[in-house]
């Protein structure tokens, strides 16, 4: 399947709707993942990330909408497609009486075989004891079992649902390193997360969803256009007139120090204005995904919560 840019698409979802009884879990969701990219799938808890992934895996059936995965229909061609992908669930449950090593082999063989050398290497990197029964594993260790089974496979597409929940920072670093390795090999990764630093560190492009709908999608650079930069400056003379500039927000300061957020398109004008007062020090912080998130959801949340606050 070809997109306009001539790149093949690993996942293509348009207008996906999935309801559970009266609950509308997915409400016209769109998702486009290009082959070979690491795509961040971001959204708050309960926004529909795991439901989308289950539809992509053919575990749930879409009500309406068009869903293509590796060129096939994830519901009808599930078995054939699953040979080409590896999955790490968000909440890994294993069989209590089966050891971690056995579970890795089982899942690997069911998927179509795993590389024994990679298996050994990954067990070492993730510092996992494969001889323990799953009932004695912590959440993090169960997560590692699923990660090792997935990463030791020869899949084209990796579907990872919040794969680092429960991992300590050291293991998170190992995980990031492995994902970069996958990208270097040209494999495609769909990485769902609500940890934004993870997406920032790993993803080529991200899609942000909320209430079962895609609210934004694009490269990090593209999304940054939509966000504000934080500026802190010390000037020789007190700054005046900044608040009159369009695109400047949350202005604070005094005593030759000023702090404000500015929209991307107003950045140039704001810095020019500042230089008129003799800049002594200037720090500018690029917007983080946290801010992007907060702006997207924070404002809407504030609007939604207002009537309730009034009522109570």
């Amino acid at each position: 399947m070809r997109t306009l840019r001539g790149m093949t698409s690993a996942i293509s979802v348009t207008g996906l709707v999935k309801t559970f009884g009266a609950t509308r879990a997915l409400d016209g969701l769109d998702l486009e993942v290009t082959t070979g990219e690491v795509h961040g799938f971001l959204g708050p808890n309960g926004s529909g990330k795991s439901t989308t992934i289950r539809v992509l895996l053919g575990l749930l059936r879409a009500d309406t909408g068009r869903v293509r995965l590796l060129g096939g229909d994830p519901w009808a061609d599930a078995v054939a497609l699953h040979r080409r992908l590896a999955y790490v669930p968000g909440d890994v449950t294993l069989w209590p009486g089966i050891t971690g090593g056995e579970a890795i082999d089982l899942l690997g063989r069911l998927q179509g075989g795993l590389d024994p050398a990679r298996r050994i290497e990954l067990l070492e990197r993730f510092d996992l004891d494969p001889r323990k029964k799953a009932r004695t594993y912590s959440k993090g260790n169960r997560q590692k079992v699923a990660l090792v089974a997935a990463l030791a496979s020869d899949a084209e597409l990796f579907v990872l649902d919040e794969p680092t929940s429960g991992l300590d920072p050291l293991m998170e670093a190992v995980f990031r390193d492995e994902v970069r390795g996958l990208r270097a090999e040209g494999r495609t990764v769909l990485l769902s997360s609500h940890i934004l630093a993870e997406a920032e560190a790993l993803c080529d492009r991200v899609s942000i969803i909320r209430h079962g709908r895609t609210v934004q999608s694009g490269s990090l650079a593209e999304l940054r256009h939509l966000t504000r930069t934080s500026i802190t400056a010390e000037t020789a003379r007190p700054v005046t007139g900044l608040d009159a500039l369009p695109g400047v927000h949350d202005l604070a300061g005094g005593d030759g120090r000023v702090r404000f957020d500015v929209d991307a398109e107003a950045l140039d004008a704001a810095v020019r204005h500042l230089s008129g007062f003799g800049i002594r020090a200037l720090t500018s912080a690029p917007p983080t995904l946290e801010e992007l998130f907060l702006r997207h959801y924070g404002e809407e949340l504030a609007e939604e919560q207002l009537p309730e606050a009034v009522r109570s």
Binding site: G101, L106, P130, R131, K132, K133
Partner: peptide
């Protein structure tokens, strides 16, 4: 607890 098997037997490879 006794440590279990580090890898699965041949049998444990299908549903």
């Amino acid at each position: 607890p006794r440590p279990g098997a580090a890898s699965a037997s041949r049998l444990l490879g299908s549903p």
